[in-house]
Design a protein around this nucleic acid. Structure first.
Lengths: 221, 221
DNA sequence: TCAATAGTGTCTCTAAGACATTATGTT
DNA sequence: AACATAATGTCTTAGAGACACTATTGA
C-alpha cells in the first residue's frame, strides 16, 4: 500500500487541415524533460473535485482553452510506465476545433498530425491510439465528429470529416438522411462560397440544445 | 499533491436463474464495516503489475474464482466518495457463469439480483449502473452475453439471455442468422432435453479460439 | 454556356422481421 | 396421435446505396 503516483493525461485532438492532429507540449520537468508529450499532471486533491476536473484544469493551464468535449478514456497503470515508480494515470481525450486552439496557442504548444508522431514518453502513444480508436468507433454512430468542426460548416465539409475519421467514403444521400435523422443541425442564413465556380453550400451550426451533448444513432453511420 | 487513496472495485455479474445478479461481500473493515459492498481493495504496488491485475487478485482472493471476462469500466474519483479522503477507484466489471461462482461460494459471498440491490456504500451503485449500461450496450453488437452462459447452452437459451439483457424480444430467425454470422459456436454432439414434451434443442459451446475474445458484429443485434 | 459542386428524387438491392412449415422429442 | 418447442424456408418490408437529374454559382 505504498504511495501510488496519481496523474491525469489528456489526448487533445483537433483537425489540422485535412488531418487529425494531437496537441503535444515540451516537458518542463523530469522525467523526459524536454521531450514532447501529451498534456498531463498530478491530480491535486486540494484543488480538483475529481479526475475530470483535474483534466479540465490541465487543459486550461497548459493550452489556455476550455475544451468543448472532454471524456474519460481509460486508466493506464503499472510499475513500469513511469520511471519514478508505480503510477496510475486517468487518461482523457478532448476534441477542439483548430481555430480555438490557434487563438490561444503559444510557442510551447505543438499540434502534430497523428500520422507524424515521433516516439513519445510514458505510454502516451498507447493513450493516443486508444483515443483514436474511441473517436473512430463513436464516429460510426454519433455526432462526435461535430466537436472537431468549427462553429459553422457545410454538409460536404462534415461528410469529408466523417470520411476522414472512418477511413472510407460515404454515400451522400445516406449521410444526409442520417444527419437529418439526428436532428442536430440548424441552417445558417447566408450561404457559403470560397470554393469557386459552383453552387455554394448551405452553412449549418449545431443546434443550441445539443451543443454540449452527444447524439447517438439507432443503427449507425 | 497529498496522497490519493488508490483502489480497485469489481462489479461481478452473473446470471441467477432468469435475472442478472451482482456479487456483494460484507465489509470486514471501516468505513462501512458490516455493510454489503462490491469486491474491492487497495492497489498493491508491490504485488500488482497494473490495475487489471489488482482486480484479478481481488476477485480471486474474495471469491476464489478466475473470472472468464474482466474489463476495465471507468475510474471514479473525488473528494467525497470515500470518507477517508480524496480517493480514486479503477472500477472493473467481470462476467461469470453462476455455476463457477456456486462451486466456490462461501457464506460471505452474496449474489443479489440487480433489481433488489439495497443502498450500497461509496459510489458502488453508480459503478453497478455503469457496468449494466456497458453490458447492455455491448450486448447489442457482440458476443459478450456468452460469458454469462455456462459451458454449454442451446440457442433458445442464448436468445433468452440476450433478450433479458436487451429488455426486448428478438426475432428468432434474425438472431440465429447473427449468431451464425459471428461464427463463434460449435455444436456439441448429443442433444438437450429437460424441457419436456417437445423436440430437444442442439447444445453449443463457444469455439476454443473465441473462448477469451469478444466477437463484434458489423451491424448489430 | 460551360464547368463544377450542392442538393434531391428515385430505383435497386440487401438485410431484418413476420409468418409458415417441417422436425423431433415426450406423454 | 397429440402437443410442444426446435429449426428452417420464404415472403414482406424497411433501410442503405447507386444513379441520375436539377440547382446555383463563377469563369
Amino acid at each position: 500500500m505504498s504511495a501510488v503516483i496519481c496523474t491525469v493525461d489528456v489526448v487533445l485532438l483537433t483537425l489540422l487541415g485535412e488531418e487529425l492532429a494531437a496537441v503535444l507540449l515540451r516537458r518542463e520537468h523530469e522525467p523526459f524533460q524536454g521531450a514532447l508529450a501529451i498534456p498531463g499532471g498530478y491530480v491535486h486533491p486540494q484543488d480538483d473535485l475529481c479526475a475530470h476536473d483535474a483534466a479540465m484544469r490541465v487543459i486550461k493551464n497548459k493550452t489556455g482553452i476550455v475544451a468543448p468535449y472532454l471524456e474519460q478514456l481509460a486508466t493506464f497503470s503499472g510499475a513500469t510506465r513511469d520511471p519514478r515508480g508505480w503510477s496510475l494515470s486517468v487518461a482523457h481525450y478532448a476534441l477542439v476545433p483548430y481555430p480555438l486552439l490557434a487563438a490561444r496557442k503559444d510557442a510551447a504548444v505543438h499540434v502534430v498530425p497523428v500520422s507524424q508522431l515521433g516516439t513519445l514518453p510514458f505510454d502516451h502513444r498507447a493513450m493516443i491510439d486508444t483515443a483514436l480508436e474511441r473517436l473512430r468507433n463513436k464516429s460510426q454512430y454519433s455526432s462526435l465528429p461535430c466537436f472537431l468542426a468549427g462553429d459553422t460548416f457545410t454538409l460536404p465539409q462534415l461528410q469529408r470529416l466523417y470520411e476522414l475519421l472512418l477511413g472510407e467514403t460515404l454515400n451522400k444521400v445516406s449521410f444526409r438522411r442520417k444527419m437529418s435523422e439526428m436532428d442536430i443541425l440548424d441552417p445558417v442564413d447566408g450561404q457559403f462560397e470560397a470554393a469557386g465556380a459552383h453552387r455554394p453550400a448551405q452553412l449549418y451550426r449545431l443546434k443550441a440544445a445539443v451543443r454540449k451533448t452527444l447524439t447517438v444513432l439507432e443503427r449507425g453511420l
